[in-house]
Design a protein around this nucleic acid. Structure first.
Lengths: 99, 99
DNA sequence: CGAATAGTTTGCCACGCGGCTAAGTATTGG
DNA sequence: CCAATACTTAGCCGCGTGGCAAACTATTCG
């Protein structure tokens, strides 16, 4: 997940797909690299589950898999939870300092 | 940012630091690698701005920089916004199909 | 059918990442 | 002051990643 999003090209693809499905060729047009190179990114995103692709005729269409982005959000939420626990403990501690 | 979080060791450090500051040595104890290797991760996290570190005497203490995690949340929020716009357009389109 | 289109596969290369050992530098406790 | 502690630096190595060009496959259009 994070690995897949750690590349600007791939984040670009995710952003673009947020606006709706697109073909590999259309997507590739927006990035300064050859098709084979670009296709690797598509595959990476797909195996990370961030996008789904289907081939119809000779054109492969990519769509964003929104649910997967929630995984990142969940991780962040967990971090916030951990941090929250800690400040709670701190609050209690500080509070109990004043009997 | 995403690159820094793309490594399990570094995510582990972030999680651990959520519970409060810790020294490099203490943190390293939780991971199966040598100190020099571990230190690289600390440096990576620091230059990504995810943590801040200060050295007192011979011990370097690390603290989580919560604000930076918000950057990831912002990116996700932006994605949601883009997606939302699109479904809005879609709604309008569908709605206007029925005069 | 034949040519253009849209991916796909293959094979190559450079670079950086993540790991290691060994050796060096401050600090600190006795 | 000396030894232990806590990093830090330096240097090395294997592997994965991200890029390319060239050649191949499968559709579609005229």
């Amino acid at each position: 997940m994070f690995v897949a999003l750690a590349d600007p090209t791939r984040r670009g693809v995710v952003r673009r797909l947020g606006q709706g499905p697109a073909s590999v060729g259309d997507l590739a047009g927006a990035f300064p690299m050859t098709l084979p190179s670009f296709l690797k990114h598509v595959r990476t995103l797909e195996s990370a589950g961030l996008i789904r692709t289907t081939k119809a005729g000779r054109v492969r269409t990519c769509v964003l898999n929104r649910e997967r982005l929630a995984v990142v959000e969940d991780w962040l939420a967990e971090q916030r939870a951990v941090w929250q626990q800690r400040t709670d403990r701190l609050d209690r501690f500080v509070t109990e300092e004043q009997p």
